[in-house]
Design a protein around this nucleic acid. Structure first.
Lengths: 198, 198
DNA sequence: TGCCGATGTTAGTCATCATTAACGAATTCG
DNA sequence: CGAATTCGTTAATGATGACTAACATCGGCA
């Protein structure tokens, strides 16, 4: 018998293609609104062929969200340790989130929309990774703005995620780099209000 | 000619209850993930009884989103005209959006998640109302920050919506008024970057 | 009193899926 | 050469779920 199920063992191009196509479709029509048939069609195979690559539709979603959460967390982790000081770390986190959101708007959308459809073993894992990522931000912010209570910093972090992840909604309003600069400035300014204690 | 379908003719309490329950369920499980049976159960009636109040599931969603869009737009409109100057108008818009998001997190969630499931006559209408609301913000911002090109203002507006609508994600982090104050400050600060021309 | 509209109920009906079966071709490698 | 593994294909199969039918109940009210 084979191993239980190693998530990202041999990333065959077919698997990749399926995950990419599914991300777009889930973002556009939602998990329940997307028949497995269409996912197959999007990569040139038809319907049940997906089961040669994933144990099921939910497992596909689970792998997708685990991958996103892990990539975000890992990237954040690396950027923070690479940074010289807290301000630099914060800028790196912001820039990282912006790049990801601009590069993969569909993944961002699915990530905060479909967690409820991930089956339970994986759901907890995704949540854990999300929490770690948030705490990464909170830690940096706490260094930068000591005196601000952590719940406040957590709420502010979520708010900034909302701001940065707005990208899928304002698609095409501005060229990419202009959008990146705009969002970066807004995020920085929004977080700078953490200095006030009121 | 009459209007397409007078949305809120006689708001019977039953109708209200159904819309409220459906909002919560759609936010939690998604439109396609919520059987009509559960909506009924949530208000004490069972399943197909809904058809005594709405022509169908999609129509229910349509009415819900039309109502939200209309309320947001109308409230914004009124607040702006009531305000003395642009800064005051902006603060009123921000405060209005925050109050709505804090009072009706489910509606906020459904509003930007399920538009794709609204059938076509209504979808256009919802989009129109959303656009009007955004333009309301853009107009105020243009007065406050002349020199900033409208696309930039539009993108910034969407970003601030993302920030303010983050409330459902950070539920319970802070007491309500603290959250309102926090978000207001962040939104203001984020928009203040519109003065820079870079 | 006796009809009626409003509001429910429970049993179909019909589609739409996810998932599985049964079966083929191609590639690997013994 | 052949068996086995891989990756597809097209028919079931079975649930689920929206919507419709047929049938109560009940509060007016002519």
């Amino acid at each position: 018998m084979t191993v239980v199920r190693s998530p990202a063992r041999a990333p065959s191009p077919r698997r990749r293609a399926i995950l990419d196509a599914a991300a777009g479709l889930f973002a556009a029509r939602g998990f329940h609104g997307t028949p497995i048939e269409e996912i197959g069609a999007a990569v040139g195979i038809s319907g049940p062929a997906l089961y040669r690559h994933f144990p099921g539709k939910e497992a596909l979603l689970a792998e997708m969200l685990l991958d996103v959460s892990e990539r975000l967390r890992a990237a954040g982790d690396e950027r923070v340790t690479r940074a010289a000081g807290p301000q630099e770390a914060l800028d790196a986190l912001i820039r990282g989130q912006i790049d990801f959101a601009l590069d993969h708007p569909a993944l961002i959308t699915v990530h905060d929309r479909e967690l409820g459809n991930v089956p339970e073993p994986s759901r907890r894992q995704v949540r854990r990774l999300q929490r770690l990522y948030v705490e990464e931000w909170v830690t940096v912010l706490a260094e930068l703005y000591p005196g601000a209570p952590p719940p406040r910093l957590r709420a502010a972090t979520h708010a900034v995620f909302g701001l940065l992840n707005s990208t899928p909604h304002s698609a095409g309003e501005l060229p990419r780099e202009a959008m990146a600069v705009l969002l970066h400035g807004m995020a920085r300014a929004a977080l700078a209000t953490m200095v006030n204690q009121d």
